[in-house]
Design a protein around this nucleic acid. Structure first.
Lengths: 196, 196
DNA sequence: TGCCTAGTTGGCAGTTAATGCCAAGTAGGC
DNA sequence: GCCTACTTGGCATTAACTGCCAACTAGGCA
């Protein structure tokens, strides 16, 4: 039906406008210091409607994570079967880098997240859902008895890879985006896997 | 001064009573479904006072994490100088295990945290602070030029160790505490460091 | 054209966590 | 028994949400 598509489109435009307002205000005066009322006022909608677009204030910053998680999972899944779990996950993250926003926007959002403890925690918590979804995908690459016993290995490897990705991003933000994020990720993983 | 000590003592007794009430209610009816008003009522104090003992509702569950973080740092610091960063951190976690509460209480709290997203996020936030505090401690064990350039290695190693500890705890909770937590931790770390 | 229906919007009231303020109480030290 | 330091409770307020209802808007159809 065209109807649905049209509606969705205008919805997306509205959502983007709200998002731009919110991110601008967050960057200008900080996340905690910005109220929903102010965002709604400046975006020209009611507070009530804002909550219909974004269920929570935090979703204004880490809202579209869900879509990225799906992309990550699919990418890892599609790597050649003979590729190791580590390499497949690395390939997945590499795709995420390009799929994100512009580098500037990504840096701005990342800075917001890493500078705001509550946001950072919430962001990590959202990613825990990605991790859970990745378990079966990784497990098949471990040559595991894909049986009932939950193999700690998949969970641990995924958690580690995310920990390194997070660390790399934090370093990247700390350097104002001047270093290469993929390089930093490789350095982090090397520090973990290739040291005494 | 004895005065201060006495006051502190009665404060601690009161805090413990509030805590017991809160944890009982959380276990009975869930974290989100339990209001501060109800806890205060059943503990026999005013809402206002409850917030003076525990700054936030979340602190009722992960409040004494701060003290544990301090203990972790001190323990890691005091390991023999020739011990590797990995082993020193492991020793730190081992001390935490015994310093926690009884195994039952720890299991109860852990289950609450892992089952409640907002709590889990808050818990992660506290752990991020531990991680930051550990950076200098770990860095000296890496034979690093302890200079200005922030070495990614310390950050990455710490993040990984915490990721494995978290994974181990999640598995432990999933098995109702029947497996050994330290064993699970070792399995997680082995999966990360000793695999192709 | 004009109605019908589905879906959106905004306002309003209410809940919950959290903070500031002030007055009342309480427990040592003199 | 008073003074001081500290705690407590009540009140008001803010900010993030949520439910409810009435008003609006845009296709579909006669």
């Amino acid at each position: 039906m065209f109807m649905t598509t049209l509606w969705d489109r205008s919805r997306q435009v509205a959502a983007q406008a709200i998002l731009d307002t919110a991110v601008r205000l967050f960057a200008e005066q900080g996340y905690e210091q910005t109220t929903i009322a102010q965002i709604a006022r400046e975006a020209g909608i009611s507070q009530r409607s804002l909550f219909r677009y974004f269920g929570t204030k935090e979703d204004l910053v880490c809202g579209d994570q869900d879509a990225l998680g799906e992309l990550l999972k699919r990418t890892v899944e599609r790597q050649p079967a003979e590729m190791s779990a580590w390499d497949a996950l690395r390939a997945g993250f590499e795709v995420l880098l390009t799929a994100n926003h512009t580098a500037e926007r990504a840096l701005e959002l990342s800075r917001l997240i890493f500078d705001t403890p509550s946001l950072h925690a919430r962001y990590i918590e959202k990613r825990l859902r990605w991790q859970a979804a990745l378990i079966p995908v990784v497990q098949v690459r471990l040559g595991a008895a894909t049986g009932l016993a939950p193999d700690p290995r998949a969970k641990a490897i995924i958690a580690t890879v995310f920990a390194c990705a997070d660390t790399a991003t934090e370093l990247w933000v700390g350097h104002d985006g001047r270093l290469d994020l993929a390089d930093l990720y490789d350095q982090c993983l090397a520090a973990v896997r290739d040291s005494g």
